[in-house]
């Protein structure tokens, strides 16, 4: 991590530089560069098929970009594919869109997987830590013995979050955390993410379509489109943007409603 000057005011946790991705003929990213600072909630937004989720998968090492580099904590994300990448894997947690809970394990066992894999703690202590995490994400203790197929969509999402934070990672990735949740639960989920961020000092990177959620919790947002980053900034900055695609995204009927709502709420961020 010598490449990271320690004196930098906001240390970058993720450094995406000149990434391009092609699947056969289709160009997903032409030249994408981003950096995520420590302690912020960074959102990646954009229309369907603009390569948001692909970018996320590249950052966590599930896909390799066609060219360009991605650095996580100063280390090349390509090392994640190798066994040497294990220490790096401990430093971040990923919550997948549909939870990706292991269907053969109960909720408690699902959350305990990273602890059993990476630490030598006693089963009793693991149980205790898992119970605390399950309570933290707001799931009732008796749901711990249930299997994923017995949980509702919102509960599965929470369980996936519990598994993602069980190792107290420095970095948390959320793929469409609020998609398909009702507005009340989605708002609750946003609140939960913010409070966890405050408690555990997380840096959060999320991919989302949810404009309400963007107004509520994102510190900075990158809008992807046409394989490029169309704009990066706070929501208020982006809503002033001159880029036609960004304008369309934020000033469509839903975008306006969300921004009015945000203005009405006075962006109450003190959760």
């Amino acid at each position: 991590m010598a490449s990271q000057p320690a004196s930098e005011k906001h240390q970058s946790v993720i450094e995406v530089s000149h990434v391009s991705t092609r699947f056969g003929q289709a160009v997903v990213h032409a030249d994408v560069s981003l950096s995520v600072r420590q302690g912020e909630v960074f959102a990646i937004a954009g229309g369907n098929g603009c390569g948001k989720s692909t970018l996320l998968r590249e950052i966590v090492g599930l896909l390799t970009p066609s060219s360009g580099t991605i650095r996580l904590f100063g280390q090349d994300s390509r090392s994640l594919e190798e066994y040497d990448g294990r220490p790096l894997h401990r430093r971040f947690g990923v919550m997948f869109q549909h939870g990706a809970l292991f269907s053969s394990l109960t909720l408690v066992d699902n959350v305990a997987v990273p602890l059993r894999e990476y630490t030598g703690m006693s089963p009793a202590l693991i149980r205790e830590i898992v119970a605390v995490k399950i309570a933290m994400v707001g799931l009732p203790p008796e749901s711990g013995v249930k299997y994923p197929s017995e949980l509702s969509g919102g509960m599965r999402r929470r369980a996936a979050l519990a598994r993602a934070i069980v190792m107290d990672p420095e970095l948390l990735f959320l793929d469409e955390p609020t998609a398909g949740l009702d507005p009340m639960i989605a708002a609750g989920f946003d609140k939960l993410v913010l409070s966890l961020k405050g408690l555990l000092g997380l840096t959060v990177v999320m991919v989302t379509h949810d404009l309400d959620s963007l107004w509520r919790i994102a510190d900075r947002v990158a809008v992807l489109g046409n394989g490029k980053v169309l704009g990066v900034g706070t929501m208020s900055e982006l809503s002033q943007s001159n880029d036609p695609v960004v304008r369309e995204y934020f000033h469509g009927p839903r975008g306006r409603a969300a921004s009015e709502q945000a203005a009405w709420n006075g962006r109450d961020r003190n959760v």
Partner: peptide, 19 residues
């Protein structure tokens, strides 16, 4: 201290031991 208290609060919540 905040973290310890938070954890303590969560532990306190945990009454039932499952079925």
């Amino acid at each position: 201290e905040a973290l310890v208290q938070l954890v303590g609060a969560q532990q306190g919540d945990r009454g039932g031991k499952g079925p």
